[in-house]
């Protein structure tokens, strides 16, 4: 079993999505997609947040600003070289609703299909993930009208409890970055571990 913790507003989560799907397909591992909210720490890629300041900064503040600028540039560089359209986020997004939609899709074993539809549109700035209407429309596309029409009621009933359970699981595991992968109790942050994960899942790794 592979558990994948993903913040949809994390550009690195988006960059990891297709290669994570390929890993799942190659290994045949059963995967769980678990939505998390990392807040601003996971969304370094905001317009105008380049960390530059005319004011004197402490060494620590300079370090954090340099890190933020570099990570932003690096994500854009990889997205560009892989042919992915990405538009810098214009603000921090509330993710409770979209995370509920992912958990809702999971009930029909369709979290991956839902994310495949959602992530490119969100990162092209074509989807309002705070809009129940927009998310329901997307769920209709993925699940069909009959299943998707229950989403508004779900958000106000079971969705609260089920999302809280996912959040509690992420807190228990110690998720501080996205994407995060959990295999046999071992936690990995970042898509750079995919080769290692594949080796672990196929029994081809030295521990």
């Amino acid at each position: 079993m592979l558990s994948i913790f993903l913040d949809v507003t994390s550009i690195n989560g988006y960059l990891a999505f297709s290669s994570t799907c390929e890993l799942i397909d190659r290994t045949g591992v059963q995967a769980r997609w678990l939505p998390v909210s990392l807040g601003r720490s996971g969304s370094f890629w905001l317009v105008g947040e380049d960390g530059m300041s005319d004011e004197p900064q402490s060494r620590g503040a300079q370090h954090k600003a340099a890190r933020k600028r570099h990570l932003k540039m690096d994500a854009l560089r990889y997205a560009h070289r892989r042919g992915l359209d990405v538009v810098p986020l214009d603000r921090s997004w509330q993710t409770e609703l979209v995370n509920s939609a992912i958990v809702f899709a999971s009930r029909s074993d369709a979290a991956r299909a839902f994310l495949a539809a959602l992530l490119p549109r969100f990162w092209r700035a074509e989807l309002d993930i705070e809009s129940e209407t927009a998310l329901t429309e997307l769920l209709v596309n993925v699940l069909g009208h009959e299943l998707a029409q229950g989403f508004p009621d779900y958000v106000r009933s079971d969705g609260v409890r089920e999302l809280a359970a996912v959040t509690a699981e992420a807190d228990e595991v110690g998720i501080i970055d996205s994407p995060a992968y959990l295999v046999d109790g071992e936690l990995f942050f970042g898509r750079q571990h995919l080769l290692t994960l594949e080796a672990l899942l196929t029994g081809d790794a030295v521990r």
Partner: peptide, 28 residues
């Protein structure tokens, strides 16, 4: 980070084929 060594290698060798993604070496 060493996860960029595949990209560094790709650039140093004249960018053959599609750009690689980040990757650590395989365990072991």
């Amino acid at each position: 980070g060493r996860e960029h060594l595949p990209m560094v290698r790709w650039l140093l060798t004249g960018q053959p084929g599609p750009a690689p993604d980040v990757a650590y070496e395989r365990l072991g």
